[in-house]
Write a protein that binds this DNA or RNA. Structure first.
Lengths: 147, 147
DNA sequence: CCAAGATAGTTAGCATGGTAACCGTATGGA
DNA sequence: TCCATACGGTTACCATGCTAACTATCTTGG
């Protein structure tokens, strides 16, 4: 992602909002600032994850598998649903996680269409390795937002 | 982009923040919510732009050229700098805008390394066509955020 | 009971972000 | 002056998002 360094000017937004009474210049500007903040944060997170041979999506996939309370595995579709990405992206992500030895993918018992995806011990270790840095970055970002 | 439908739970974040006193669960959670909101908004914007044969980046490129106060053209590097994307992405974006007839790219006079990029009349029309919808979406998003 | 449809997953191909490495043009100091 | 360096732009290639269309496995209704 990305976003303009210099946001659309207040004057430019004003030109729109005067013609649309329900719109408010300040809140539109706040939304643009949010987009800019989010885009910088994503860059920072992606670069952090890259240092750990992960990406944001691979990390989040580990998270959703790990945090499932009653089970130790999920199907690919369940993971796609929780991550809110398309199934093809999920397939690719799981293949790369499996190649890195962070998850185990097995044929589901019962319905032969499903696959069971579970964390390996390495996967759990990787999560433990990365979580502190992840929350530290989020915590910094919160602090900056308030500054 | 994308982001978890179900954010990391308060309990999970707590587990980190108790070990790191400077971190605060509420602000970390607020940052995660911001990421989720930004990701949904980006999807909405990209789909809006696609309806107009644009993308977010192509649209923003038109904006930064148009809003330059004293000049009617920018160099590719200046555009890259303002958009905050890499120069190769800028090259590709400008090529597709030129192919669509929305910008004109000419060799710069003087320093032969530069190119001058200017909006065509079609480019200005396209901006005028798209801006109201753009701000309407941002305005909606602001409203939702406050709801 | 089995053909038609639904569902899980994959493959193929496109768009758009990135970095590394290249060319051509300027520029500046030995 | 002219070679080394810097700079603008491009090319080549990789990562990661998407949709469309495919295969394989259930499920269901005539």
């Amino acid at each position: 992602m990305f976003f303009l360094k210099e946001l659309p000017s207040r004057r430019m937004i004003n030109g729109y909002t005067v013609a649309h009474p329900q719109a408010d210049t300040n809140t539109v500007l706040a939304t643009l600032q949010m987009m800019r903040r989010a885009s910088l944060l994503i860059r920072r997170l992606e670069s952090f994850f890259a240092e750990h041979d992960l990406s944001q999506l691979r990390f989040l996939a580990l998270i959703v598998i790990d945090r499932e309370p009653e089970r130790d595995s999920l199907s690919a579709s369940e993971i796609a649903e929780r991550l809110d990405v398309s199934r093809p992206v999920t397939t690719r992500t799981l293949q790369s996680l499996a190649a890195a030895g962070l998850v185990r993918v097995e044929a589901g018992e019962g319905d032969g269409r499903f696959k069971r995806v579970a964390l390996t011990q390495n996967g759990r270790s990787k999560l433990a390795e990365v979580l502190p840095g992840y929350f530290a970055i989020l915590s910094d970002a919160s602090a900056e937002a308030r500054a």
